[in-house]
Simulated assay, not measured.
Amino acid sequence: MSETMRAAFVKAPFQVQLREVPIPEVKPGWILVKVEACGICGTDLHTLRSASDWSPLGHEIVGVATKVGAGVRSVREGDKVALESGSFCHTCAACRDGRVDLCNTGPNYWSNPTLGFAEYILAPEEGAVVFDGLEWEQAVLVEPMGVALDMVYTADIRPGHDVLVVGMGPIGLMAVALVRRVGAGRVYAAHSRRGRRMEAAKAMGADEVFCTQEWPISCFPYRKRRVAGGAPREHVVDRALVTAPPRVIPETLQVLNYGGILSFIGIDWGEGQKITIPADDFHFNKAQLRASFASPALYFPTCLQMLRDGWIASDLVISHVMPLERLEEAFILLRDDSANTLKVVIKP
Rank of each mutant, 00 (worst) to 15 (best):
C92L: 06
I157F: 04
L102E: 12
Y153D: 05
E137C: 05
M151P: 02
S85I: 01
A139Y: 06
P159C: 10
A148P: 05
L83N: 07
A123Q: 08
H90M: 09
G133L: 13
P113M: 07
C89N: 04
K80A: 08
C89M: 02
G127Y: 06
W136Y: 10
G133H: 11
E135T: 14
A155H: 00
N112D: 12
M151D: 11
S87C: 07
A94C: 08
H90E: 14
L115Q: 14
P124G: 14
S85L: 03
A139P: 04
D101Y: 09
T154I: 00
A123N: 11
E119N: 10
S85R: 03
W136G: 02
S87A: 14
G86D: 02
C103K: 04
T66E: 13
N108P: 03
I157K: 02
F88D: 04
A118S: 15
C95A: 13
H90T: 12
E125H: 13
R73I: 04
E84M: 14
K80M: 14
T66Y: 01
F88C: 05
D156A: 06
G116Y: 00
F131I: 05
G146I: 04
A93H: 13
G71C: 03
A94Y: 13
E143D: 15
A94Q: 12
N112C: 02
W136K: 05
T91P: 02
E126S: 14
V142N: 07
C92W: 03
D101N: 15
T66Q: 10
P107F: 03
L134G: 09
C92Q: 09
E135H: 12
Y120V: 04
I121E: 09
W136V: 12
G146T: 08
C95S: 11
T105C: 10
M151K: 02
C89F: 01
Y109Q: 08
L149K: 03
R96V: 07
L134M: 10
G106R: 00
G98Q: 09
Y109A: 13
V140H: 08
